[in-house]
Design a protein around this nucleic acid. Structure first.
Lengths: 105, 105
DNA sequence: AGAATATATGTCATATTTGACATAGTGTCA
DNA sequence: TGACACTATGTCAAATATGACATATATTCT
């Protein structure tokens, strides 16, 4: 995974810029991004499994549809905390989150 | 786990107050707290395994000793993002974090 | 004991994240 | 086609997290 990953990140708003700049995206940052993407994927999967709209999940979270969209898009403005709150609100537990992280990426 | 857990949380600065108030700590909130505690535990374990002081880890993270102390104490002012940054800076990867969550709590 | 080193706690200005809103895009059905 | 439901994207004031600092409390030496 190299150029494909970079494009995927850029598409999601990480604004990495040149390849050179991408290379300074440290391993730590990459791990954090990977983690966030795994969680946003799990969030969308769970929401869809429950046949909820983003609007409905937003209400559950006392948030807004636009923020839920950003959560699922892995937007950089979304914290891991918020993603976890979303997953837990959908009935996940820490063990399941652990499994999701362990398998993903 | 009931009163013991409440005391443990209060001791860590979650200021839960009365038992009645504790009961309104929803399952979602509890799951998030559990997650944070699992991560702070893992952080301390990794730091100590590497024989680093909080000061040294702070430098690595471009943060401060006091914040590292709060990270390891599971202080409510610390985000999951910051805990993950700490773990990744210590060489953990998302899979290992997943394992830690899956086993803990 | 006391000095040295490590960790904990409280506070605060600054930085980042948040919900909310507007609006644009996408898919579906008549 | 157009109306409808859902999702995506941009912006911003308010809320929350952050690093830094001072200082308190352990812990570990001699």
């Amino acid at each position: 995974m190299k150029k494909a990953k970079r494009n995927s990140l850029e598409a999601r708003g990480w604004r990495v810029g040149s390849v050179a700049e991408f290379l300074v995206l440290s391993a730590e940052d990459a791990a954090l991004v990977e983690t966030k993407l795994a969680l946003s994927g799990a969030l969308r999967a769970r929401r869809e499994a429950k046949k909820l709209t983003q609007q409905q999940l937003a209400k559950l979270l006392k948030s807004s549809q636009s923020r839920v969209a950003k959560m699922e898009a892995g937007d950089p403005s979304v914290s891991v905390d918020l993603l976890l709150k979303g997953l837990f609100a959908l009935g996940a537990n820490p063990r399941e989150v652990g499994r999701a992280l362990h398998h993903a990426a």
